Computed example of a mutant assay.
Amino acid sequence: MKRGLVAAISLCVATAAAAKPPGAEAVMIRMIACEGAGVRMEVYLPLSVDRHMRGGQSVIGYYTLDLTDVNKGKPLEPVRVTLSADEKTVAVDQYLRGLPPTRIPVAGGTVDFDQRFARRAKCGAFQSQDPNFGN
């Protein structure tokens, strides 16, 4: 029994020591920020995409729904973000929740993410399309 426990602990320590730090693809940047009634939503994409997203391109990123004010925290969930072919809207697909994609004008606008917390959210511009982004 002791041998099994020692082996399991050794394996865990060896695995942790061998773990690699996240690469550049793990660095995320906030691309969309929205505010609703008592909630904030943000969409993060890989830094490598920030100014290079093309019309029709889809990228996996993360969506946050900040419910800190109502003591429910700020979860991260993966989302599929697609810039429309005409580069006028960004679709945020919360595919794990089975919700319809939220379409946000690239210049910003008011949108509904979901019906429980994130209705009538005012979103700023999609940052990769802002010519002053980073300046």
Rank of each mutant, 00 (worst) to 15 (best):
residue 95 Y to V: 04
residue 58 S to H: 11
residue 99 L to Y: 03
residue 120 R to V: 00
residue 2 K to R: 15
residue 61 G to D: 03
residue 94 Q to E: 14
residue 91 A to K: 08
residue 34 C to Q: 04
residue 53 M to N: 04
residue 115 Q to S: 14
residue 129 Q to P: 00
residue 115 Q to H: 15
residue 13 V to I: 15
residue 94 Q to F: 10
residue 127 Q to A: 14
residue 119 R to G: 08
residue 56 G to A: 06
residue 97 R to C: 07
residue 111 V to L: 01
residue 21 P to M: 08
residue 24 A to G: 05
residue 90 V to I: 13
residue 134 G to T: 00
residue 33 A to F: 06
residue 30 R to K: 11
residue 101 P to K: 15
residue 38 G to Q: 12
residue 17 A to G: 09
residue 13 V to Y: 12
residue 130 D to E: 11
residue 58 S to F: 09
residue 14 A to E: 08
residue 69 D to H: 11
residue 15 T to C: 09
residue 68 T to K: 11
residue 59 V to E: 11
residue 126 F to C: 03
residue 78 P to C: 03
residue 130 D to H: 14
residue 36 G to T: 13
residue 99 L to G: 00
residue 73 G to K: 01
residue 46 P to M: 01
residue 58 S to K: 10
residue 60 I to L: 05
residue 99 L to C: 02
residue 125 A to P: 05
residue 113 F to A: 00
residue 25 E to T: 09
residue 37 A to P: 12
residue 34 C to H: 04
residue 23 G to Y: 12
residue 66 D to Q: 09
residue 30 R to G: 10
residue 129 Q to D: 00
residue 131 P to V: 06
residue 65 L to W: 07
residue 113 F to N: 01
residue 2 K to H: 15
residue 15 T to E: 11
residue 100 P to G: 05
residue 12 C to E: 08
residue 84 S to H: 01
residue 97 R to V: 03
residue 61 G to Y: 04
residue 21 P to E: 08
residue 53 M to Q: 12
residue 28 M to L: 05
residue 82 T to P: 03
residue 59 V to F: 06
residue 106 V to S: 05
residue 49 V to T: 10
residue 9 I to P: 09
residue 90 V to D: 01
residue 64 T to Q: 02
residue 42 E to W: 00
residue 95 Y to H: 08
residue 71 N to C: 01
residue 64 T to N: 10
residue 33 A to D: 07
residue 42 E to P: 00
residue 60 I to K: 08
residue 63 Y to L: 10
residue 94 Q to V: 10
residue 118 A to F: 06
residue 135 N to S: 13
residue 69 D to E: 13
residue 101 P to E: 05
residue 41 M to E: 08
residue 19 A to Q: 15
residue 123 C to T: 09
residue 45 L to W: 09
residue 70 V to N: 06
residue 13 V to S: 13
residue 36 G to I: 15
residue 91 A to F: 03
residue 29 I to F: 14
residue 54 R to H: 14
residue 91 A to V: 07
residue 12 C to A: 15
residue 62 Y to K: 07
residue 97 R to A: 10
residue 112 D to W: 06
residue 23 G to W: 10
residue 89 T to F: 12
residue 7 A to V: 12
residue 79 V to L: 07
residue 68 T to W: 07
residue 126 F to H: 06
residue 93 D to T: 10
residue 96 L to H: 11
residue 123 C to M: 07
residue 135 N to V: 14
residue 26 A to N: 07
residue 134 G to W: 06
residue 103 R to L: 02
residue 87 E to D: 00
residue 22 P to L: 01
residue 89 T to W: 14
residue 24 A to W: 04
residue 51 R to I: 05
residue 15 T to L: 12
residue 131 P to L: 00
residue 134 G to I: 01
residue 133 F to E: 09
residue 69 D to W: 08
residue 38 G to L: 12
residue 103 R to I: 02
residue 66 D to C: 00
residue 62 Y to H: 11
residue 6 V to R: 15
residue 61 G to W: 05
residue 93 D to L: 11
residue 43 V to E: 02
residue 52 H to S: 14
residue 92 V to C: 00
residue 125 A to G: 04
residue 105 P to N: 06
residue 38 G to N: 10
residue 36 G to Q: 14
residue 72 K to H: 02
residue 67 L to S: 01
residue 7 A to H: 12
residue 49 V to L: 03
residue 25 E to A: 14
residue 63 Y to N: 02
residue 16 A to N: 03
residue 108 G to C: 09
residue 37 A to V: 10
residue 39 V to E: 13
residue 26 A to D: 14
residue 133 F to M: 04
residue 133 F to V: 02
